[in-house]
Amino acid sequence: MTDDRTRDTAFGFRRVAEDEKQGLVNEVFAKAAERYDQMNDLMSGGLHRLWKDDFVTMLSPPKGAQAFHVLDVAGGTGDIAFRIVKAGGSGTHVTVADISPEMVGEGRKRCEREGLLSRCDFTVGNAEALAFPDKSFDAYTIAFGIRNVTHIDRALKEAYRVLKPGGRFLCLEFSHVDVPLLDRIYDAYSFTVIPAVGKVVTGDGQPYRYLVESIRTFPDQEAFRAMIEEAGFARASYRNLTGGVVAIHSGWRI
C-alpha cells in the first residue's frame, strides 16, 4: 500500500513529497508575513481590495445583534475578518485560523490597531484538520488560501463538517482567465513583474514566484466547483471577477 510519505504533489511547478509541502508553504508565508498586505496592493494594483469587498458583500453578514459566527481560514493578517465584522452587526464574530504563526501574529497586531479584539479571535490551525466541533459556524470563508493546502478535498470536507446546517461556504481564489489577450498579458505580468517587485520589497522574490506558479496549478473554475459539490455542498456555483483572474465560489451545507 502506498502511504502519504511516498506520494508527491505540486508545489508551484515543482513536485515534492506530500509530507514536505506544508513546511515549504509555511516558509513562504513566514518570509512574506510582514509585508504581505503591502505586496497584495503592489501585485494587484489595489484590485484585491475590490475583490475582497465583493466577497464580503456576497457573504452579507446580518446587520443586527443576532449571533453570526464566521470561521475565516487562511485569514492570516485579518483582511477578510475585519471587513466581515465591519459589514455585520454587533452579533457578528470572526475566528481566524491560519497555519502560519507569523501571519497570525501580524493579524493580531492589526486587530489591536483596528480596535476589533472583542470581535475577532486568532488561532494557528490547519485547514485539513480544524480544531473545532462539528456544526459550529454559520459561515466559512477562505480567501487566497485553499490553493496552498496539500489536500484540497480534505479541506473542503472539514469546511462542510464545521458548518451548521444552512451554513455557507465562500472561497475567493485566483482562477483561470477566460478573456482572449488578457490571459497573455496576465501571464507576462505574473511571471516577470510580481517576483521582481517581491524581491525589491521583501528582499526575496522566490516566495512570489511560488505564489504565481501555484495559481497555474490550481483547478479551473468548473473543476473546483465540482470538488465543492463532491464535498457535499449544495448549490455549488462561482462568479468570475476581472475576466476570471479571480473567482468567488459558493456552496451551502444542507
Score class of each variant (00 low, 15 high):
17 A>Y: 09
55 F>T: 02
17 A>T: 06
40 N>C: 05
102 E>G: 03
238 Y>P: 00
66 Q>R: 13
235 R>F: 12
218 F>C: 02
54 D>T: 11
226 A>K: 12
52 K>N: 06
195 P>I: 06
223 A>W: 04
197 V>E: 06
5 R>D: 13
127 A>C: 05
46 G>S: 08
217 T>R: 15
169 F>A: 10
125 G>V: 00
198 G>R: 04
224 F>Y: 07
153 D>R: 13
67 A>R: 13
171 C>F: 07
146 I>P: 00
64 G>L: 03
243 G>L: 02
148 N>L: 03
173 E>T: 01
117 L>M: 14
11 F>I: 09
153 D>L: 09
51 W>P: 00
90 S>M: 08
191 F>H: 12
78 G>P: 01
177 V>I: 14
252 W>P: 00
224 F>E: 06
146 I>S: 03
101 P>C: 12
64 G>M: 07
113 R>N: 11
34 E>P: 00
134 D>T: 07
239 R>S: 11
159 A>E: 05
161 R>Y: 10
119 R>V: 01
129 A>H: 15
130 L>Y: 09
47 L>H: 07
189 Y>C: 04
215 I>V: 15
28 V>S: 05
85 V>K: 01
10 A>K: 13
162 V>G: 05
181 L>C: 12
179 V>M: 12
223 A>V: 08
207 P>D: 10
41 D>T: 10
149 V>Q: 04
65 A>C: 09
29 F>P: 03
50 L>I: 14
243 G>F: 05
223 A>L: 09
47 L>T: 12
221 Q>T: 02
158 E>R: 01
86 K>G: 13
27 E>M: 11
199 K>L: 12
231 A>M: 02
111 C>V: 02
1 M>N: 15
239 R>L: 12
252 W>A: 12
76 G>K: 00
143 A>I: 00
175 S>K: 10
168 R>G: 08
231 A>V: 04
186 Y>D: 07
101 P>V: 11
35 R>W: 07
156 L>F: 06
94 V>A: 10
37 D>K: 06
32 A>Y: 06
246 V>W: 04
190 S>W: 06
183 D>M: 10
125 G>Y: 03
219 P>H: 12
66 Q>W: 06
240 N>E: 09
